[in-house]
């Protein structure tokens, strides 16, 4: 059951059950707020030659050099090179350390409570998103919110 880890992760503690909803390519994505450091407006970015399409830029977030990530590539969405929308700065644990990264979002919407019981698994087959990145979905009206697993989605060694 692929959704179990994520449902558990979202229910683990208070902070994990609260998520920030962002929009990328029209889809609503939920990121646990415990990972979110801040949301900033677009700033000049620096191209990293020969880098993967997943992390092709660097930006300066308050004096720190931070990789700017485009999740579309890993979520099999069409990649765009526009510099609009917002930038979500995240802290991701890697082993004992954590590192900071920024991701592009078309839009940052709201912070919601996630009810673990309402999380539905994605179909085993036919889901357009890799199951290790998107671990479940939540229905809200006509909308479908995709629950992301940040540790997996932003893991550096999974090269493009």
């Amino acid at each position: 059951m692929t959704q179990m880890p994520s449902a558990a992760a979202f229910a683990d503690d208070e902070a994990n059950s609260i998520a920030l909803i962002i929009r990328v390519c029209g889809e609503a994505l939920a990121i646990p707020v415990s990972h979110v450091h801040e949301v900033i407006d677009p700033i000049p970015r620096t191209r990293v030659p020969r880098a993967s399409a997943f992390a092709p830029w660097l930006i300066n977030v308050r004096g720190a050099v931070v990789p700017l990530v485009d999740v579309r590539q890993r979520l099999r969405m069409p990649v765009s090179h526009g510099n609009q929308g917002r930038i979500v700065v995240l802290d991701i644990a890697m082993g004992a350390d954590s590192f900071r990264l920024a991701m592009l979002a078309d839009e940052v919407q709201e912070v919601v409570d996630i009810d673990p019981a309402a999380v539905e698994p994605l179909p085993e087959n036919g889901s357009p998103w890799p199951a290790n990145y998107v671990t479940g979905a939540l229905r809200r009206g006509d909308d479908l919110i995709l629950l992301l697993d940040p540790e997996n989605l932003f893991r550096p060694e999974q090269a493009a």
Partner: peptide, 16 residues
């Protein structure tokens, strides 16, 4: 260099 770019040997690092 960040973990995403550590394998890019052309660069010694970044600066602001």
């Amino acid at each position: 260099m960040s973990a995403y770019h550590a394998d890019l040997e052309d660069f010694a690092g970044a600066t602001i």
